[in-house]
Simulated assay, not measured.
Amino acid sequence: MGHESLAAVEERAKFHAMEEGTKEDWAIIARDYNAFATGLADRVLAHLKLLDGDFGGFPVDRLTHSLQCATRAHRDGRGETYVAMALLHDIGDTLGTYNHPEVAAAILKPFVTEEEHWICQNHGAFQGYYYFHFLGMDRNLRDKFRDHPFYAACAEFCARYDQSAFDPDYDTLPLSFFEPILRRVMEMPLSRRPLPVPA
């Protein structure tokens, strides 16, 4: 069946402007939205794979760096949302060359803690501590966040995982290891998950 034929049989809303929408229209849209949402992890994984083979002058490609970050966090016993954040922290490199931390943070925001979101959103300034001075920039740019409650957590992320994840000889776990973790994390926003029952 051709694309036009599929479009003809697909049930769609009838309005031409949202102000004309009906309850029936929005039931159709909600149904399709929920179906589309279930494929989010697949789309994120496909985009992450774009980093494969992209070295940008670094000792390892961007995908290996991301996997190595996540591997180090996982081996340190970090929770799944933290590991997912470590895995995706640079996913914005392809579409947000000048603001990649914000792109990654926007993708992760519904699925990670406030602290993990903040780390992802601001890791660029913190990572700069390790190289900005070589490029004529202020390596202490991160100090503008000195009084923020998540300052130490972001500095730790960069020190333990991000800046150290460029080792071609490190025993980095493959993407297939992290796929189930990412799928669990992205299955439902944190705000919609049931609270854990105290033991």
Results as ranks from 00 to 15, higher is better:
S5W: 01
S5N: 07
L6P: 07
L6F: 12
A8N: 07
V9Q: 10
A13D: 06
A13H: 07
M18E: 11
T22S: 15
D25N: 02
A27G: 11
I29K: 03
A30C: 04
N34T: 05
A35H: 01
D42V: 04
A46L: 10
L48E: 08
L48Q: 10
L50D: 14
L51M: 09
G53H: 05
G53E: 09
V60F: 01
V60K: 04
S66M: 07
L67H: 02
Q68T: 04
C69H: 07
A73H: 06
R75H: 15
R75Y: 08
D76V: 08
E80T: 13
E80M: 03
T81N: 14
L87T: 13
D90N: 15
D93C: 04
T94H: 09
T97W: 06
Y98R: 14
N99R: 02
N99Q: 05
H100G: 12
A104K: 02
A104L: 00
P110W: 02
F111T: 04
E115M: 01
W118Y: 09
I119R: 06
Q121T: 04
F126K: 00
G128Y: 04
Y129R: 15
Y129W: 12
F132C: 02
F134C: 03
G136Y: 11
L141N: 06
R142G: 09
A152P: 01
F157Q: 03
F157V: 00
C158V: 15
R160D: 11
R160E: 12
Y161G: 05
Y161D: 06
Q163R: 15
Q163D: 14
S164E: 13
A165Q: 02
A165K: 02
F166C: 12
Y170K: 11
D171M: 04
P174W: 09
L175E: 14
L175M: 11
L175S: 07
P180D: 04
L182G: 13
L182F: 04
V185R: 01
L190C: 03
L190F: 07
R192L: 13
R192Y: 08
R192A: 15
R193M: 11
R193G: 06
L195F: 11
L195R: 14
L195V: 10
